[in-house]
Computed example of a mutant assay.
Amino acid sequence: MVTLKDIARECKVSFSTVSKALKGSSEISAETIKTIQEKAAQMGYHPNLAARTLRTNRTFDIGVVFEDKTGAGLQHQYFAKILSGFQKVAQEKNYDITFTSQSNDKPFDYYNHMKGRNFDGVAILSADFDKPGIQTLVQSEIPTVTLDYFYDNNHTSIMSDNKKGMTELVNFIIENGHKKIAMIHGENTLVTQERINVFKSICKNNGIETPDEYFAEALYHEPITSGEATNVL
């Protein structure tokens, strides 16, 4: 088994330099990091995760909550790219990610589930953010980040610019001469409500009516329910 001392001996540097290089530390030069990391890969070095966990009291593992009503899973048209990017950055920082989802409608204890696995943090990418289990997790001591849902200024969230996107979309339709515009939206979420509000506001400013029958609900990125909604409209 290749150790840090073996790599240090081959590279003729100190043990601490090797340790810093494998972590990508800014304390040493990019050239030294590249040289040591390439030598470690060449020698077949693999970090001892158990030892690292004991030494740092961290698992270097991030839990990911991903609930998908469409059943597409990791092949989801929208989330696939997000999940891929998330995983890539995590790996670059020497972290693993572990997916967690609720398989039924029964109450699920997300907090104790994540706590039991000693995750260093949790990313909540797709879920019913109003669920008691999700809210308990967010309010706990475990660091969390949410996607497209804002709790308060004490919690980290990554938000899409729904206002800009809807503004550009609706203005494009209007500029092309359309006056009778309907909207098929996804399930009732904070994102959906923001998009609907922007849609109505722009139409109102342009003198376009938006009666209730012009709106239909489907599932995001699910063609069957979207098709059914189109037939209703």
Rank of each mutant, 00 (worst) to 15 (best):
M159S: 15
P132W: 06
S226T: 14
N104A: 03
V138P: 00
A51R: 15
D212I: 12
I181E: 01
E67R: 01
S25Y: 07
T192I: 10
P211D: 14
D96K: 12
G73Y: 03
I36M: 05
F66K: 04
V89L: 08
I224L: 14
Q139Y: 04
N48P: 09
A21M: 04
K81G: 13
Q42R: 10
K93Y: 06
H76F: 03
V18R: 02
S201H: 14
T225M: 13
N94G: 14
V65Y: 01
L137Q: 02
H155F: 05
K93D: 04
M183V: 04
V170R: 05
H221F: 15
K69I: 07
K200E: 05
H76C: 03
D96Y: 11
T53D: 06
L49K: 06
K69T: 05
R195A: 06
A218C: 10
D130N: 14
N48R: 06
T146V: 02
N154W: 00
V122M: 01
L137N: 00
M1V: 14
I33C: 07
G133T: 00
S101T: 15
K81M: 14
I202Y: 09
N197E: 09
F15I: 13
G207K: 02
L4T: 00
I134H: 03
Y220R: 05
E38G: 10
T59G: 01
I36S: 04
T56Q: 09
Q37K: 11
V13Y: 01
T35Y: 10
I196F: 12
I158A: 12
G177L: 10
I224K: 07
I174S: 11
R55G: 10
R9F: 04
Q87L: 10
Q75N: 15
I196D: 08
K179M: 03
A50F: 05
M1A: 09
E209H: 12
A90Y: 04
K88N: 14
V232L: 15
D96E: 15
G186I: 01
L74D: 08
F215V: 12
I208G: 08
H113G: 00
S19K: 06
Q37F: 08
K163W: 10
A216W: 07
D148H: 09
Q102I: 13
I33F: 02
M43D: 01
C11R: 06
G24D: 08
S157R: 08
I28V: 09
F86K: 05
M43G: 02
L190V: 15
M166S: 12
F108G: 02
I224S: 11
A40Q: 07
M159N: 14
E38F: 10
G116R: 04
L49Q: 13
P143G: 02
Y220N: 06
I142R: 01
P211I: 13
S19L: 08
S16A: 12
T98V: 08
D161I: 04
H178A: 10
G177S: 09
A21Y: 03
T167W: 05
K81S: 15
Q193N: 15
D6M: 06
V170P: 04
Q135K: 15
K204E: 13
K106H: 14
S16H: 11
V122D: 00
G116F: 05
G207S: 04
T56Y: 09
Q193P: 09
P107T: 10
L169Y: 07
I36H: 02
V122H: 01
E187G: 12
E168Q: 14
F199Q: 05
S226K: 12
